[in-house]
Amino acid sequence: MFDSTFVLAITVGVLTTAGVWLLQQRDMVRAIFGLTLISHSANLLLLASGVPGWRHEPLMDGTTAAEAADPLPQAFVLTAIVIAMATTILMLALAVIGRNDDQESAPTVSDNDQPDNRPDAQPDAQPDSQHESQPDDQAASLSRGQQGVDHA
């Protein structure tokens, strides 16, 4: 029962669960870790779709077609890894620019309305006490903050 497919399926499940849990966190770096785990689980799923067990490497002269693994899912995974790397770098860049890790207050209505490109602009100039949240109140602050977009 504990064959490789089973192990793969469990691993995909665990990675996805951990990724989703990390995504629920407010700070960007944790979200990035979560997305990385999810993309790993997607890669394993892709691999599992072609190869139910361990097979020989799909090289023309090295193995016969009957023994060789399916090369297509491996090509998929390779492509997906490259894309995941590019997006991870982009997200890491998003995580370090700006003044904070977007943990303290969500954008209010005026934030979206006026172009304000100065790097020294004060993102938290007028923190509405209702929308200000404690760091340990992260999940709640997300929903409150988003409502704040409308009602502020």
Binding site: D102, D111, Q114, A121
Partner: peptide, 9 residues
């Protein structure tokens, strides 16, 4: 803008 970063994220 800097303030729009949250939305971008």
């Amino acid at each position: 803008t800097w303030r729009r970063l949250g939305i971008s994220r």
